[in-house]
Amino acid sequence: MRDLLVFGWGLALGVVAFSLVGGLTAAFVLLERKVSARIQLRVGPLHTGPHGMLQTVADLIKLVVKEDVRPSRADPVAFRLGPLLTAVPAILSLAVIPFGGPLLMRGLNVGVVYFLAVPGMTVIGLLLAGWASYDNYSFLGGLRSSAQFISYEIPRTLAVVAVVMLAGSLNTVDVAAAQQPWPYILLLPLGFVVYMITTLAEVNRVPFDIPEAESELVAGYHTEYSGFRWALFFLAEYGALFAAAAFATLLFLGAGSGPFLPDIFWFVLKTLIVVFLFMWIRWTLPRFRADQLMRLAWKVFLPLSLVNLVLAALVMQAIGPR
């Protein structure tokens, strides 16, 4: 009986997480528009609500009530599955992030691997969406995204392995606790750089957004989508962005440690700073070409991440076993 209660509680938490990510997406879209406007010397959304703060809410309402358009030659099953399989893993991956306070979940002994593994399912969604649309731009976008994801997954995983070596645990709560004196960004600066750049590629953001490069592919895998399904792609993108930023906070920035205020405050603050960093990069740098992107992954980041592993081993020797 108690088990079933726990089970129900988990389901309820899932629903809450889904709505939270929805709200977060709306907030992040607004933030992105404001940041981009500031960087490009514009003002951004201004009229809906105070300082245009309700603009994304209005957009969301518009998207939800829009007609659901499906290309007549699209594969109906795959076309519907695509956005779902893209959005759900992004939300699932949040389950192991130890935000602190009431959101400190210590369920999984392999949380770090879980976080690396679950977003991998996103690629299936992108491939399906691109293929089902029956459209060359979408198809190319889907293929590009999966090639990119698989290539960048390797250096990214190796960068995380270095952290796991130092922390001596795969449990996210232990990884956070292990960084008590110094956060790992000080011990593994190279690992942090590799993690951040490969993460940009994993969440398909500029300068690695070739799967949806507007100048070549219209909008990549979501060219044919509109209305609510398109909103799901947006939810996936910003949910993944938030999760990746939270994971960077957990692995390298000392998780929730900070003076005076509670853990959860510091954790969210650091995460938001990382999110802002990602947005800053997006609106500052140009886009790579597809072949440059692959060369970068295999000839630069893979060796760098291996060097980082050796460095981590040296650090382990220096500070002694934990």
Binding site: N109, V113, Y114, L116, A117, G120, M121, L170
Partner: peptide, 12 residues
């Protein structure tokens, strides 16, 4: 661990 490896290697 086998479960997450399954998702990592097989599904992803």
């Amino acid at each position: 661990f086998v479960a997450v490896v399954q998702i990592f290697v097989y599904v992803g």
